[in-house]
């Protein structure tokens, strides 16, 4: 199979980036990695925009079944592609069209349209915003908590170890990076006991640990134990986040002139 594929992952140490390296490790697929440097805005360079016109990670390129290169962007569609093509035994997915497959998709979209964007906004207002806006902090932390509550209740009601069909699928893998980073968004995972246990169950998977350490060592769990380090890390990230926002705003303004 290796000769039929040529997977190249473009990523960074973020909850969305590690979704893909974790899935690749779980599937046991060979892949190359390119790390994108947000501090240097590498993700906005023309060569990368050819791969992802949205200028975001993760993205992948691969040799498609027709032998030609294919590019994919958005973590959700990348995960759907990888299992459709490489998970023939349905170890991390289900047969297309089956009830479990559709249920898995519900949760995959719930992650990408709900948990990811809302927790991302909570990160912004809690860690990166140039000014402290209490309303923004509260709004997005509360929405993140509400979504965690949905996950927690689902795990409790179904008494299952994983979100769908009692096995670890792309629905679980897509959530893990965000849920494990709850503390960074100011959300306490202790408030969601079923979800917390699920997080620990996921973290115990060797392939997940390996994938979480791509492209840089995964240090979030240590970071969340150390407030001083957390503040320092936030201050560093704040610079490039705000720089990026400024560049986008300037680009928009330039169009209007």
């Amino acid at each position: 199979m290796a000769s039929d594929s040529d997977i190249h992952l473009y990523t960074a140490q973020t909850p969305n980036g590690i979704k893909i390296s974790i899935l690749l490790e779980e599937l046991g697929l060979p892949y190359q990695t390119t790390k994108l440097e947000f501090s240097k805005s590498t993700q906005k360079e023309p060569w990368f925009l050819e791969i992802n016109p949205n200028g975001r990670i993760p993205a992948i390129t691969d040799k498609f079944t027709d032998g030609k290169p294919i590019r994919l962007f958005e973590s959700g569609s990348i995960m759907q592609y990888l299992v459709a093509r490489y998970d023939k035994d349905h170890k991390f997915s289900f047969p297309p069209g089956s009830r479990e497959f559709l249920e898995m998709n519900n949760w995959l979209f719930f992650m990408n349209a709900g948990v990811g964007p809302m927790q991302g906004q909570a990160n912004h207002f809690t860690r990166y915003a140039p000014e402290h806006i209490e309303y923004g902090v509260n709004r997005y932390q509360n929405e993140t908590r509400r979504l965690y509550g949905v996950l927690d209740k689902h795990l409790a009601d179904t008494k299952a170890e994983y979100l769908v069909g009692n096995k670890c699928t792309i629905a679980d893998i897509s959530h893990w990076g965000w849920v494990s980073a709850a503390g960074w968004a100011g959300v306490n995972l202790d408030d969601f006991p079923h979800l917390k246990k699920w997080e620990e169950r996921m973290w115990a998977r060797p392939a997940l640990k390996k994938g979480a350490n791509v492209p840089d060592p995964y240090k979030l769990k240590e970071l969340l134990q150390d407030k001083e380090k957390m503040d320092r890390h936030a201050a560093e990230a704040r610079n490039w986040v705000q720089q990026g926002m400024k560049e986008d705003a300037e680009k928009n303004a330039a169009r209007s002139k």
């Binding site: 949205n54 498609f64 027709d66 030609k68 294919i70 994919l72 962007f73 958005e74 973590s75 959700g76 569609s77 759907q80 592609y81 979209f109 990408n112 349209a113 990811g116 964007p117 809302m118």
Partner: peptide, 22 residues
Amino acid sequence: SGAEKWEQKCWLHFQMSGQGPY
């Protein structure tokens, strides 16, 4: 089928994670 099948999904996912929420 083909690469277009996946290209469509990329844009749908961009819509629901990038357009809708913002």
